[in-house]
Amino acid sequence: MDNLKYNLTSLQEKAKERTVKTQGIEYDIETLIKKIDKGVVKLDPDYQRRHRWDDKTSSRLIESLILNIPIPIVYISQDVDVDSETEESRYSVIDGQQRLTAMYNFLKNKYALTGIETLDELNGCYYKDLPPFLIRRLEERSVKCLRIDSTIDSQVKYDIFERLNSGSIKLEAQELRNAVYSGKFNDLCKSLCSNVNFRKLLQIDIDTPEMNNRVKKMEDVEIVLRFFTLIDNNYENYKKTKDKGFTDFLSATMKRYSQAEDGELLTLKTKFEKTFFIINRDFGDTAFAKYKDDDENLKLQSKYNVAVFDALATTCHDLIFNEGIFEFGAKKQEFLKLFFDRDFYDSISGSYLDITKLKFRIEKVKEILR
C-alpha cells in the first residue's frame, strides 16, 4: 500500500512537470508575414524539417485561404519572454511550418498558383497579379495558433513536434534525428551537404539543390551521417536487430558525436571534404553509379546507388587516413570491373543492408584499391 502511494505521488509529480500550458491566439496573414520578416516568428528551428511542399500543394492552401476553408491550427512555442530591443516575444513554429512557408513564399511572389480547380482562373498568377479584393481577403484572413508556454523543456517541444506530425506527412528517419539530436554535430552534417563535390557525386544539381527529393527529405544529411557511421572500420560493429537495425546504427552515431568538442568536429569536417574531393577527382562525378554485366559490357543502371556509396566512400576514407593512400585514379578500371563480379553485384542489390553484404562490398573495394 505504501508503495502504491509512493507511485501515485511520483505519477502526480510527473504529470505536473509534463503538463503543457497553452493559449489560443489568432493572427491575420499580413501580420504573420511581418513577424516572420522581423524574425519574431522563426520558421526553421533545429527540430523542424526542410520545406517539402511543391507549388501545387502550396497553391491549394492559398486557394483554401481565399475561400475561407478552415485549415489546421499552427502550434508555436514562445522562446523568449521579452526582447530588450523590440519588447516583443519570439516564437518558433512547432507544427505548421509547411503551411506558413507556403503563405510566406506566395506573398513574397516566389511562386505562381498552379493546379487549383475551384478558382482555376488564378492559375499562373503570382500574389502581385491578384485583384485587389482577393489581396485584401488573403491578407486579412486569420490563422489560428496555439501558443505553448516558454517554460517547458526543449525535449518536450520535440515530443510535441513528433506527436503532432504523426498524423501528417510521415517524418523521415533523419528528420526525427534532426529533432532529437540537435546540436553542433547535427549542424555539421547539414552544412556538409552543400559541399560541391558531395552534391556532384550524389547527382544533386548545384544551382537548384532544393528541387532534389534527397534534399527535401533530408536524405542528403542522412548520407553524410552514413559516411561518419561506417568509416574507420566502424561498419564491422553493425549488428542488425529485429526492429530498426541500420536506422538505430545511424542514430547511435548522432548520439556519440552530440557532445563532440569543436576540435573533433573540425577533424571530421576536414576528413569529409578531403575524401569527397579525392573521389570526385579520381573517379568522376558518377563514382557512386551502379552498373550491371550486359554481355560483357557494363550497362549503367543508376548514376547514384547508396550501396556503392558505402563501398567506395568508406574505402577511400579508410585508405586515405588510416593507410596513407591518396591516389586512386590508376585503379578506376579495376574498380569498375567489380560490377562483373556476381558476388559484388549481389552485395549492392536487394537487401543491401544485410550485414554480410555490407561488410563484403566494403572489404572487396578495399582489396581492389589498396
Rank of each mutant, 00 (worst) to 15 (best):
G115N: 05
P72Y: 11
L67Q: 14
V80Q: 01
S150G: 11
T114L: 07
I66M: 11
L119C: 02
R99C: 04
N105C: 03
A112E: 14
D95F: 08
N109E: 05
S89G: 09
G96S: 09
D120M: 14
R137A: 11
F133E: 14
Q97E: 10
Y126D: 01
E139V: 03
R136P: 05
L146M: 12
P70T: 01
K110C: 06
E117I: 13
Y75N: 08
Q98W: 01
I76G: 06
Y75A: 01
S77T: 08
R99W: 09
R141K: 12
D95H: 00
K110N: 11
N68F: 03
I148E: 12
P132D: 14
P72T: 11
I116G: 02
I94K: 08
K128F: 08
L67C: 07
R90W: 06
L138F: 11
D79Y: 07
P72C: 07
G96E: 13
E85A: 10
S150Y: 14
V80H: 01
P131Y: 15
D129A: 05
R136T: 12
C125F: 15
S89V: 09
D95K: 06
V74A: 09
L134T: 05
D79E: 11
Y127V: 00
I148G: 10
C125S: 12
L138W: 12
S77H: 14
Y75G: 05
N123W: 08
T86N: 06
I116C: 02
D129P: 09
P131I: 15
N109S: 01
D149T: 14
L67K: 15
S77Q: 09
A112M: 08
Y91V: 04
R99H: 09
P131K: 14
F133C: 04
V93Y: 04
Y127T: 02
T101F: 03
K110S: 07
N123V: 02
K108D: 00
D83S: 10
D81I: 13
R90L: 04
N123A: 02
L67F: 09
D79R: 10
F133V: 11
